[in-house]
């Protein structure tokens, strides 16, 4: 009955029995799968092919070449894989890459060869959707990771030291809350000379820490007066040590929850930006950039329906996960699970 369970294990046990968490997983697992294996699901290079008697694995080799740790074998270097005879190659289920332009087939409705149709440059939407999962998840996680670092440090300092420090940092919170953040992000992303996903992550991260910082501050204020903190102080532990090794692990719950909700928010902001056509390089296909093309081609319903659906599912998944974690971590609800 009183067997001790680690907090992480305890959280896992609670989440496993929560319907909300399960539905979040149901949405997230395919997304993460697409993000991880995008190159193997949608690629204009075959898995394997024979060419002049040699066997090649262009899809796999290509991944290594793209990150710069390998080179094309001389037999297939610079080769146009679409000219490989069908019987000589095994293709991924979606034999296109998201940026593969085909000017002969623009704005094609969904069909057998393009499952979700093509955009005005003939790029395959399905390939864009699969690779877009990688971009969306990366931006969400990196941006919120940055926001979490800033938020936790500022919140911890404000909550732990209190007094004037707290007052000053609180003014900063108030400023960040009153700045029209989305407009600020649009401004900075639009001004950047060479748009890149990196800037978008940085801007979203640098503007999105206020919620996390306030939660951290509140937790630190609550915990600062607890005996073990006094004990650590008496032992001569440095403030940094007390803040991040003693208090922070006990203040994690609301931070984790706001991080998960933050990812949903960051993905919304990123897709909103690329929907407005801001900050994303022209040759990068994101869910938002596909949706953007629907503005000029209102008859091409497939450009509007599918990418929006993906954004919605992703945001919904993270919101569900956040909700499930909030319930699981809420001490008021503890024990209710067993009866239900």
């Amino acid at each position: 009955m009183t067997a001790r369970v680690s907090p992480a294990r305890d959280l896992w046990n609670r989440l496993r029995h929560s319907g909300t968490a399960l539905s979040a997983m149901f949405l997230l697992v395919p997304l993460v799968f697409c993000a991880l294996f995008a190159d193997l699901i949608a690629n204009d290079r075959p898995y394997t092919m024979t060419h002049q008697g040699e066997r090649y694995f262009p899809a796999f080799r290509g991944m290594l070449v793209d990150v710069g740790i390998s080179q094309w074998p001389s037999g297939v270097a610079g080769m146009d894989f679409s000219r490989v005879p069908p019987e000589a190659a095994v293709w991924p289920p979606i034999p296109y890459r998201p940026s593969g332009v085909d000017l002969m087939d623009p704005l094609a409705p969904p069909s057998g060869s393009h499952w979700l149709g093509t955009d005005n440059l003939g790029r395959d939407i399905m390939a864009g959707m699969v690779h877009g999962a990688r971009i969306s998840l990366t931006i969400g996680i990196v941006a919120v990771g940055l926001a979490t670092v800033i938020g936790v440090i500022l919140g911890a300092v404000a909550g732990y030291f209190g007094g004037t420090t707290d007052l000053l940092i609180n003014r900063l919170f108030e400023m960040m809350m009153a700045i029209p953040t989305f407009f600020l992000i649009i401004t900075v992303s639009a001004f950047v000379k060479e748009p890149s996903l990196f800037y978008i992550m940085a801007v979203i991260g640098l503007t999105g820490w206020v919620g996390i910082a306030r939660f951290t501050r509140n937790e630190f204020i609550k915990t600062r007066a607890v005996e073990y903190v006094t004990a650590a102080e008496a032992l001569g532990a440095s403030p940094a040590r007390i803040m991040f090794l003693h208090i922070l692990p006990n203040a994690m719950n609301p931070i984790i929850v706001s991080v998960v909700f933050g990812i949903a928010g960051a993905i919304l902001v990123e897709s909103g930006l690329s929907f407005l056509g801001i900050g994303v390089p022209a040759d990068v296909v994101t869910w938002g950039s596909i949706l953007n093309e629907a503005r000029g081609n209102t008859f091409a319903w497939w450009l509007a329906v599918f990418p929006g659906c993906a954004i919605f599912m992703t945001v919904l998944a993270y919101n569900l996960l956040g909700e499930a974690m909030r319930d699981a971590l809420d001490p008021k609800l503890r024990g209710r699970m067993k009866s239900g």
């Binding site: 949903a264 919304l268 897709s271 909103g272 929907f275 949706l291 629907a294 503005r295 209102t298 008859f299 319903w301 509007a304 329906v305 929006g308 954004i311 919605f312 945001v315 919904l316 919101n319 569900l320 909700e323």
Partner: peptide, 20 residues
Amino acid sequence: FILFSLPTFWVAILAIVFLG
């Protein structure tokens, strides 16, 4: 929950495409 997660720009585009 669903409404809260629906991106406004998507709904707006859908509305324009299908009702506009």
